[in-house]
Simulated assay, not measured.
Amino acid sequence: MHVTFLGTSGAIPTTERNTSAVLFRREGERFLFDVGEGTQRQMMRYGTGFDVSHVFLTHLHGDHVLGLPGLLQTWDFNDREEALAIHTPSGTKPEVEDLVSVAGTRPSYPVRVDEVAAGATALRGEEFEIRAFETDHRTRSVGYALVENDRKGRFDRERAEELGVPVGPKFSKLHAGESVELDDGTVVDPEQVVGDPRPGRRVVYTGDTRPSTPVERAAEGADLLIHDATFADEDAERAPHTGHSTARGAAKLAASAGVERLALTHVSSRYGGYAGHLGEQAREEFSEAFVAEDGQGVDVPFPDAE
């Protein structure tokens, strides 16, 4: 799994940071979370590809959605035929429909707008799902967690051969959870040669939010948490009033949730081209925190990767 940060600024873009957008690539599928103004150019600039099948909006503030009409139009100009699903918080479908047809016409390809409530599954795949969770902003908002299913346990080939299982199809059957019978009538069960299930990956994107218990629960054990870090300590009093977090607040939540890595994003334009002190403040609470930069890519390996 790979994550590309397309926009890491707060409400106002800067020369170094575009407004909010992040793209997840998993097993060939691409999912776009938020579409700030200029997102399509960021996708070109950083080579993410345009074959996105699902767009997930955390809320409808302009810095998270104003890039959607242009991106939809570009897909239309490029003769897109594949259907697109846009997921948006409950109660916001009419406004998103307006964005889809803001130029007076709808795209020629199918576009479906689905509302999603906190606690619901927005998308279910064969080996993963994307779940919405409650966030604490100034408007209807949700965050999203991409959660993979547990994987099969490791197959112990050496043990299987010791038990007399011949190399070949019986190995596959055992790894798939089926018992096999050997030529002498001995039955070998999967539990004898297959280890415990191994966890999949979890990547969590909060969008704009104050630190909160629902966010912490959604982030529990995440391999990567992408969290609002709009403000530094010196502006901490603004964070709760504007529905945002400080870098330190995000880091405290990450430590409490037991995540592996924390990416700080939605950085206020007041910090200009230097946001290093946000990372420094965050790492006083959680050592694996970093300030995400536009164009930065992050690989998310399996928890047991060697």
Rank of each mutant, 00 (worst) to 15 (best):
M1I: 04
F5L: 04
L6W: 02
L6F: 02
S9D: 02
I12L: 08
T15F: 10
E16F: 12
N18F: 09
R25V: 11
R25H: 09
E27I: 04
E27N: 03
E29G: 10
E29F: 02
R30H: 10
G36I: 01
T39K: 01
M43A: 07
M44D: 15
R45L: 09
G47Y: 02
G47V: 00
G49W: 01
G49K: 12
D51K: 09
D51F: 11
H54P: 03
V55I: 14
T58G: 12
H61L: 09
H61T: 13
G62W: 02
G62E: 10
G62T: 10
D63I: 01
H64L: 09
L72D: 05
L72S: 03
Q73R: 15
T74R: 06
D76S: 13
F77M: 15
N78W: 15
N78V: 06
E81Y: 04
E82A: 14
A83G: 15
A83I: 10
P89S: 10
S90A: 11
T92Y: 08
T92K: 15
K93P: 01
P94G: 08
E95D: 14
D98W: 07
V102S: 14
R106N: 09
Y109T: 03
P110R: 07
R112K: 14
D114I: 05
D114W: 08
G119A: 10
A120L: 01
T121M: 07
E126H: 10
E126V: 10
E127T: 13
E129T: 02
I130W: 12
A132C: 06
A132Y: 06
F133E: 03
R138S: 11
R140P: 01
G143N: 00
Y144V: 00
L146E: 02
L146C: 13
V147R: 11
N149F: 01
R151P: 00
G153Y: 07
G153E: 01
R154K: 11
R154S: 07
F155K: 01
D156I: 07
R159F: 04
V165I: 03
V167I: 07
V167F: 06
G168A: 06
K173Q: 14
G177Y: 07
L182S: 04
L182I: 13
Q192R: 15
G195E: 03
G195H: 05
V203Q: 01
V204Y: 13
V204Q: 10
Y205A: 04
G207P: 09
P211I: 10
S212K: 05
T213E: 08
P214D: 01
E216G: 07
R217I: 14
A219T: 03
L224M: 11
F231L: 11
D233C: 04
D235N: 06
A236V: 10
A239R: 00
G243H: 00
A250C: 07
A254C: 08
A255Q: 09
A255C: 05
L262G: 00
L264C: 02
H266E: 14
R270A: 12
Y274V: 03
Y274C: 03
H277K: 10
L278F: 08
Q281G: 05
E284N: 04
F286N: 00
F290E: 12
D294T: 07
D294A: 12
D294K: 09
Q296H: 05
Q296F: 08
G297N: 07
D299A: 11
D304P: 03
